[in-house]
Amino acid sequence: MSVFPTHEGRVAVVTGAARGIGQAIARHLGERGATVVAIDLADPMETVELIISGGHTAIGLTADVSDPEQTAAVGTQIIRRFGRVDILVNNAGIFPFRDIADLDYATWRHVLAVNLDSQFLMVKAILPAMKEGGWGRIVNLTSNSIATTSPGLSHYMASKMGDIGFTRGLANDLAPFGITVNAVGPTLTITPGVLQVHSKETLAAVAEAQAIKHNGQPDDLVGTIAFLTSDDASFITGQTVMADGGLAR
């Protein structure tokens, strides 16, 4: 039997779950016994099928979590289907590189909508059910880029600092209801999106700058998130954990 805390009987919602980090998180929570709701703007069925093929339970929902109406509808659908929400992992995010001279307001707003507004909207969508259950774990994905030199990401860094502020404030509001709220910041992680925009030289330089000198993989994050969403993390809230191989210190 595993020595790790399990998530049996929990309903876990993961956004941005179609691939990359979100897919790894969703799979791992499913392996620990949670019923997983995988949400993404892209089709999340690959993730769902991976979880189900392992003998676990999952459904997929396609939605733009930066859209208030779609997010509210997703929350209603989840609660009607399962009657509860125990875990929310706000993973959805985008990172278009733009120098400030070329950054237009529409791109600024889009990045903040996906990376920050979606976290607020998802919390609002599932919070009544989580409060009713008297137990909850919310994890918001931020980024270690806020503590590094990363040109062309002023809009992204603003959104990720906002995620940390939201996490800290929300932790204060929800502690009386048995709900903890924490943030996790990955390093530059090898995902399909990252491989499209970063050279091998950049990836090698990031790995060399870390204390643990290999590029982050999605599976490098899942243990931290599994712990923060477990019973064992009941006295941890409002914190930001940089699961980044020791780059941001």
Rank of each mutant, 00 (worst) to 15 (best):
M1H: 12
L112N: 14
L153R: 13
V222L: 06
H7L: 15
L88V: 03
L112R: 02
I59T: 13
A92D: 06
S230F: 02
V74Q: 03
H155I: 10
R98Y: 14
V139G: 00
T167S: 04
L103M: 12
A158S: 15
A233H: 04
S230R: 04
A175H: 06
T180G: 10
K213D: 11
A38T: 04
V241N: 03
T71W: 05
G16E: 10
F97T: 14
H28P: 00
V184F: 08
D244G: 06
I126Q: 00
Y105L: 14
A12L: 04
V181E: 00
D64C: 08
F97H: 11
R109G: 00
G223C: 06
T191K: 10
A113W: 01
D64Y: 06
A183R: 01
G54S: 14
P192R: 06
T237I: 03
I126T: 10
E49W: 08
G16K: 01
T167C: 11
H7P: 00
R27N: 08
V3P: 03
R10T: 05
I87S: 00
L153Q: 14
V37R: 01
M1Q: 11
N91I: 01
G193I: 04
Y105C: 03
A113Y: 01
D102K: 15
A233N: 05
S143V: 06
A129V: 07
N215A: 14
N91Y: 02
P128L: 09
R27A: 09
A18G: 06
L103R: 04
R27F: 05
G185V: 09
S150N: 13
L112G: 03
A248W: 11
N115M: 07
I146M: 10
S143M: 06
Q119G: 08
D219N: 13
A12E: 02
Q23G: 03
